[in-house]
């Protein structure tokens, strides 16, 4: 829990961009779209997990 989440998301973003570019160069448009979509979903799941954790912590902290 810390900086690694931020770095991970940035890395996924750059990686999917590169993969998409390569796939586009080789003429596989639909696979490149799927790859970028997969990266996006991965990141959304990570952020949603973080938000869920935040809500759980808030519930514990402010419940009493």
């Amino acid at each position: 829990m810390g900086v690694e989440v931020i770095i991970k998301i940035a890395a996924i973003g750059l990686l999917t961009a590169i993969i998409g570019q390569i796939l586009k160069q080789t003429g596989r448009e639909e696979i490149s779209t799927i790859a970028s979509l997969a990266g996006l979903i991965l990141v959304i799941i990570m952020v949603l997990n973080l938000i869920g954790e935040l809500f759980a912590t808030f519930n514990n902290l402010f419940k009493f």
Binding site: M1, G2, V3, V5, I6, I7, I9, A10, I12, G13, L14, T16, A17, S36, G39, L40, V43, I44, M46, V47, L50, I51, E53, L54, T57
Partner: peptide
């Protein structure tokens, strides 16, 4: 991180910002 990612994929920059805010909040 947002600065680096924004020109490549602008939609990811928002997620990075959200994740950073959440980490600080934690």
């Amino acid at each position: 991180a947002t600065l680096f990612v924004k020109p490549v994929r602008s939609d990811f920059a928002i997620f990075i910002a959200i994740a950073g805010g959440l980490v600080i909040l934690f």
